[in-house]
Simulated assay, not measured.
Amino acid sequence: MNSSFPRIIALLRKECGYSQKQVAQDLGISQALLSHYEKGIRECGLDFLTRIADYYGVSCDYLLGRTPDRNGAFLTVEDIPEPDAAGRETIRGSILPTLNKKLIANSLNIVFDKLQRCNNKGLTGEISAFLMLSVYRVLRLLYGANAKNPEGTFAVPSMLARGTATAHMQMAETNAECLSKGMAVGEMEPLLSQDDLAMTPDQLAQDYPLFASSLFNLIQNAEIRMGYNNKK
């Protein structure tokens, strides 16, 4: 078994509002044994794995941490919906969240188009990791604000999440910088030509007529936040 299994079965039980005694009785084992499974002290057999998967209505792959989808699906590019696939956003109250979402999403369209043109797996992976970790940190911040949210949703303990994510963000940024400037990192091949990363305001406006204004606004807002709000 692996480290994900104890955390996930404990989380599922708590989400359902079941006691260890109730689940143990339903599954035909002792409460002490179930407690050991949930704490990772003992490993279960395949028979128990399938029984508890059926009990909670999830897949064995989900219980083993092989996929975040409870039905066991493994995402492909085609499976991932477009950000606005649900239709036009409904603005509730302030327009600010929708405005900032569009500025960020449109700017990322440019970033990932540039990565597509570069066609460098390592560079794409490191920049993607940096961005994913950034979103992860924001999610942990919001999630942790409500004490009723179950801690077991995440594998990383809350006290370690921010520092660990930040460290890996810095490493991903450093790797991406090295790769983008032609320096190999481990087994990752460097970017051999920086031609596809040539960017001037005029070029960006010409190449991305729908998204460039969002990018320029994002740059301006970020630099104002950093205290550079005086245009010369």
Rank of each mutant, 00 (worst) to 15 (best):
Glu126Cys: 02
Ser128Thr: 15
Ser128Tyr: 11
Ala129Met: 13
Phe130Leu: 10
Phe130Cys: 03
Leu131Trp: 04
Met132Glu: 08
Met132Trp: 08
Leu133Glu: 07
Leu133His: 03
Leu133Lys: 04
Ser134Cys: 03
Ser134Pro: 01
Val135Tyr: 13
Arg137Thr: 09
Arg137Lys: 10
Arg137Glu: 12
Arg137Met: 12
Val138Cys: 09
Leu139Ile: 07
Leu141Pro: 01
Leu141Arg: 03
Leu141Thr: 14
Leu141Asn: 04
Tyr143Ser: 06
Tyr143Thr: 01
Gly144His: 00
Ala145Tyr: 14
Asn146Arg: 09
Asn146Met: 05
Asn146Gln: 06
Lys148Cys: 02
Lys148Tyr: 00
Asn149Val: 05
Asn149Phe: 01
Pro150Ile: 04
Glu151Trp: 01
Glu151His: 07
Gly152Thr: 01
Gly152Ile: 09
Phe154Arg: 05
Phe154Asn: 14
Phe154Trp: 10
Ala155Phe: 09
Ala155Val: 00
Ser158Thr: 00
Ser158Pro: 09
Met159Ser: 02
Met159Gln: 00
Arg162Met: 07
Arg162Tyr: 07
Arg162His: 12
Arg162Ile: 08
Arg162Val: 11
Thr164Asp: 15
Thr164Arg: 10
Ala165Pro: 00
Thr166Cys: 01
Ala167Ser: 02
Ala167Asn: 06
Ala167Ile: 02
His168Pro: 04
His168Met: 04
Met169Asp: 01
Met169Gln: 02
Gln170Met: 13
Gln170Thr: 09
Ala172Trp: 01
Ala172Pro: 01
Ala172Tyr: 04
Glu173Leu: 10
Thr174Gln: 11
Thr174Leu: 13
Thr174Ile: 10
Thr174Arg: 10
Asn175His: 15
Asn175Ser: 12
Asn175Cys: 14
Glu177Lys: 15
Lys181Tyr: 10
Gly182Phe: 09
Met183Thr: 04
Met183Ala: 06
Ala184Leu: 12
Ala184Cys: 14
Val185Met: 02
Gly186Thr: 01
Glu187Pro: 10
Glu187Ile: 06
Met188Phe: 04
Glu189Val: 01
Pro190Ser: 05
Pro190Asn: 03
Pro190Lys: 05
Pro190Tyr: 02
Leu191Asp: 02
Leu191Val: 09
Leu191Ile: 13
Leu192Val: 13
Leu192Gly: 14
Leu192Glu: 14
Ser193Lys: 07
Ser193Phe: 11
Ser193Gly: 13
Gln194Glu: 12
Asp195Glu: 12
Asp195Phe: 11
Asp195Val: 13
Asp195Gln: 09
Asp196Glu: 15
Asp196Ala: 15
